[in-house]
Design a protein around this nucleic acid. Structure first.
Lengths: 243, 243
DNA sequence: GTTATAATACTTGTATACAAGTATACTTAG
DNA sequence: CTAAGTATACTTGTATACAAGTATTATAAC
């Protein structure tokens, strides 16, 4: 019996979420953090007991995670895939792809409102750092990019984003929490990258946008390995899902 | 009481599908064909009665359709969004985006096996036309592009494809069924476009690939309006989901 | 000891039951 | 006739029950 361990996902972000959503968010965090190791077989019944809910919301959660490619639904049980370095690179491939696409649309429309909105979010990010709030910083970081994507009103690009977002959010959350302790200096660079991004949108300079985007991603990717190893280490002492 | 009307989705493609999947495939076809009009509010209970299954598989289906952006889940009922011209253009935006990305990867690997596989599929497509089988043709057409995407082993590009595929498949099915009657000559052009695509992959000519891809899409998009209007007309005489 | 068969304890998928909340419609008071 | 409030008939989300199928384990035969 595995009981009452800490929840990894910020509970205040789940104020109006259904049980199924709660489970999906928490399970996703545990998988991406490595707390539930890749290869683990999850059983609906065990998860239901673990989260103290019925199988209905569990099934819902598993369907969601399967559509995000972090688990694989099989005949008997759900196999955890997780995020290896390969998958993380792939996620950034897709981000680069869709944000480039979005930028192409952006240069054709009025971006004054957007730039204002992004500046506001950037301010929020700075304050989050000031108060050492990694979770809030992550939230604003994700919101920053989401705001850009929303601005071009492309429902199928948005669909891709919506599928990618939860996994990315989880990954960024874990990454930022770690770096806030180990590498606070990273945050100033992230901020300046985002400032560059805003500037690229303002003056509609494609090359500058690509540059800032790449730097932003490279920055995150450069730190992946550290995070990864430490998360894996961290998870060794934790009771696993399957007995 | 709406009863025993024809199923739009080929039943033989659902041999091993769960009730939830069956419902999702059929509902998708009815929405995309316009048989269920945009704006319609779907009720889980009514759908359950209509499809003679319980609410469980219905809920499953609605979740899927919502993730594909063709319905919107609200407090009371699911609102049908459907596919307008805008959405269809957006789908082709995304296809162009991901297939271009895939091609960039393709030019770096050995494509002999892929070209062989694609040639086989093309032969199948020709035979499908010969026997006037629009459904089989559609299947092979979708498979053609899926095969290309699979070949680069990119799980997150594949994720996008998997989200897009059902909607596209439905749309292509409806489109091809109509054109087989009205515009059989279209098919020879589609075939030659695909031949061009294979050639582009074989000689790894990016421009040729983009050209064939664009022509292929323009071809489909050019015919959208016709299909659209006729489908809308067609649906006028049909009993709707909501009484 | 090995193999085959049978029993058991799992698995998922679907149906049904129930609870909490929301919109609608009706009734009653003014 | 209008307005307010209540009752009713919906809605979703979750829990539970059941059926069909699969893997595993134990038992029995050789």
């Amino acid at each position: 019996m595995t009981e009452s361990r800490e929840f990894l996902y910020p509970s205040k972000w789940l104020s109006k979420a259904s049980a199924g959503d709660r489970v999906s968010y928490e399970l996703r965090m545990r998988i991406i953090s490595g707390q539930i190791e890749s290869g683990t077989i999850l059983s609906e019944n065990k998860l239901a007991a673990d989260f103290a809910v019925s199988r209905s919301p569990i099934r819902e959660a598993l369907k969601i995670l399967a559509s995000e490619n972090i688990i694989r639904l099989e005949r008997m049980g759900a196999v955890v895939i997780g995020l290896s370095d390969k998958e993380i690179e792939e996620i950034y491939d897709v981000r680069l792809l869709i944000e480039s696409f979005v930028f192409e649309r952006l240069v054709r429309i009025d971006t004054n409102e957007l730039v204002k909105e992004l500046s506001k979010i950037l301010e929020m990010m700075k304050i989050s750092i000031k108060y050492g709030d990694a979770d809030e910083f992550s939230y604003q970081d994700v919101l920053f990019h989401e705001t850009i994507i929303h601005s071009v009103n492309h429902s199928y690009i948005l669909m891709i984003w919506n599928n990618l977002k939860p996994v990315m959010e989880s990954f960024i959350l874990l990454s930022m929490r770690k770096r806030l302790k180990d590498k606070v200096e990273d945050f100033t660079r992230i901020i300046s990258n985002h400032e560059l991004y805003i500037e690229a949108i303002r003056i509609k300079d494609r090359d500058l946008m690509i540059k800032s985007l790449h730097e932003n991603f490279d920055d995150v990717q450069g730190k992946v390995e550290d995070l990864w190893i430490s998360q894996q280490m961290l998870s060794k002492g934790v009771v696993q899902q399957n007995d």
